[in-house]
Amino acid sequence: MSTAFLLNGRAVEADGHPMSRLLDVLREQLGHTGTKEGCGEGECGACTVRLDGSPVLSCLVPLFQCAGRRIETVEGITAAPEGPLRDALERFVATGGVQCGACTPGIVVTLASLLASNATPSREEVRTALAGNLCRCTGYEGILRALAPAEPER
C-alpha cells in the first residue's frame, strides 16, 4: 500500500503497511538515516521529526497518519537554516552541545520548532522544550549554552 506525503518539501510515496513506523519508513525506505532510534517507545526523543510543523516522535507515528502531510527531518531542517536556527546550530558545536551525537538530530528538530515560535528563548523555555529529549553525554549544559544567553559569572 502506498502513502504519499511531503518529505523535506519534496513529494514522496512510501510503500508499506499502514501501521509501519514512520521512523522505519524514513530510515529504511527513504534513506533518511539522520533520524535515530533510541528506545522505540517514545521516551528518548532521538527520532523526533516535524509533522506539519510540530515535533513528533516518529517511532510512534504510523505511516497512514502521514498521508498528505508535511514531514521534515533533521536533514531538511539543517540543509539551509536561517535566522536564529542558523545561529544556534553554529553555536551548538562550539559550546559542547554535541558529544556522541546520537541524540543530536532529535534535539535539533525540537529546537528548530522552538525557535520558529520563539527566537530568543530563556533557559527555562529551552529546558521545557527539551523535556522529551534524553542526552546521556552532555549533562545538557553544552546544549543550553548554545541556546540560552550566557549569565554573568557569580
Partner: peptide, 21 residues
C-alpha cells in the same frame, strides 16, 4: 583552545553514519 570538533556538523545535520545507518 577549544576548536569545533571535526565531527560536529555531521552529527548536527544527521549526516554522521552510525552502525544501524
Amino acid at each position: 583552545a577549544s576548536p569545533p570538533r571535526p565531527d560536529g556538523f555531521a552529527k548536527v545535520s544527521g549526516a554522521a553514519r552510525y552502525l544501524d545507518d
